[in-house]
Simulated scan of single mutants.
Amino acid sequence: MVAFRSLWLLLPRRVRQLPADLAAVVSLVIATNIAVLVPVIRETPLRVPIGLAFVLFVPGYAFIAALFPEADETPASATESTPPDGRTIVDDSDPDGWDDSIPSRPGIDGIERVALSFGLSIAIVPLIGLVLNFTPWGIRLVPIVVSVSVFTLGSTVVAAERRRELPVDERFQVPYREWYIAGRTELLEPDTRADAALNVLLAISVVLAVGSVGYAVMGPADGEQFSAIYLLTEDDDGELVADDYPTEFIQGESQELIVGIDNHEHKTTEYTVVVLEQDVEVVENETATSDGDTNTTVNKTVVRDQRELDRFSTTIAHNESWTHEYTLEPTMTGESQRIVWLLFPDGDVPAEPAMGDTEYAVHLWVSVSDS
């Protein structure tokens, strides 16, 4: 306890005097960055509820706090009061009793503050994403989290400074102490036994509701389980695209491409990729209808020769992708050569793998010449 107090005193005075609601905003921003960016923690479901609060409420709340640092009511004094239309009574010498030159403070109440926080958050985050779309960083997880964090912390600093400039009795404050005292009195000191029973039922209902929502958010159903393998190339800008594959080879020379794997198996999975080189012949078969008229042509692929070029393995976490720069060097020559990448989850590879042994495969047609 003493060590904690010593660390607290080491903080700048302005930080120690930060209002409780703004301190909670800063704490949630820090917690979100930890939950999203720290390798071990980002694997846990903890980032789901923290991320939802961060995106849907916190930026708007900080922005509203910067716009409206005042409390929602102007305190009355012995010599003045505030009528419904916003004017202030000062003395009996005024013909109508009100002074039109002194407006009331433009504060908003707690319900308006919460509603505007949700609404502005839903507007602010997409606008930040739109701006990022025109930057080199693009709309990615880390740039989004950092940008929203910077905006929120900047708004929090402005809100803290604007509140500090106001008299103490005019600053907005979250009455959490009053809420705690009222809730404690209502729960522990009920007026009647019926009120006590209702309080117990209410507490149980809240716990069950929070638990149900938390389970639904943090433990979603597994859904469909599948994997995927695909081929990519690198364009002139260094971006990975599914285009411009190498198709013309000279025997003994190699070309580069990218092999990508996606894991949606809802578990960490070990994959083995087997690369086959096939000399293929395409045979046309005609199919006749029942009345004897021929109207359909079906192409049949016949593998005349097959060789295993390579195999490699990797382990991928659930909902993660993995890319591998692969050097392709065919050994067979001809115009109808097919290179096949077979993906086997959990390392279950047959002794002589073929395309029918797995549902995950990708192929590339190439032409290989002698020189």
Rank of each mutant, 00 (worst) to 15 (best):
L153S: 13
V131T: 09
V29I: 04
V2C: 06
A361Q: 06
G51H: 10
P103L: 08
D236S: 13
T327K: 14
P330N: 06
F172L: 05
A361V: 09
A361W: 02
L130G: 14
A242Q: 03
V148N: 10
D236G: 06
R140L: 06
T156C: 09
A23C: 10
V298G: 10
V90W: 11
H264Y: 13
G347A: 10
V368A: 03
V340Q: 06
I50Y: 03
S369Q: 03
P83Q: 06
L127V: 01
P84F: 05
N299K: 12
V210W: 12
F226H: 11
L328W: 03
T82G: 03
P350I: 07
R5C: 13
R164F: 00
T301R: 09
E359Y: 08
E73K: 14
S104I: 08
E359D: 05
V259E: 05
R304Q: 07
G238C: 04
P45I: 03
A160Q: 05
F68H: 12
S6L: 02
L328R: 00
G238N: 05
I30V: 10
S147C: 09
Q173K: 08
G260D: 00
P84S: 02
A78S: 13
I111N: 12
I261N: 02
F4I: 15
Y271D: 00
G356K: 11
A159W: 05
P19N: 06
R140D: 02
L153M: 13
G110H: 10
V15A: 13
V282A: 08
D21N: 09
V283Y: 06
F57I: 15
P143E: 01
F118H: 07
V148W: 15
S93Y: 07
Q173H: 07
G138C: 00
D99F: 14
N133L: 04
L232Q: 09
I144T: 10
A182P: 10
L120K: 03
M332A: 04
G211I: 14
P83D: 14
V131D: 01
R162Q: 06
L342D: 01
T268Q: 12
E186T: 15
D169Y: 07
E73Q: 15
Y245A: 02
T323M: 03
G260P: 00
S313I: 09
L127W: 00
A20D: 13
E170T: 05
P143K: 07
A221M: 02
S81V: 01
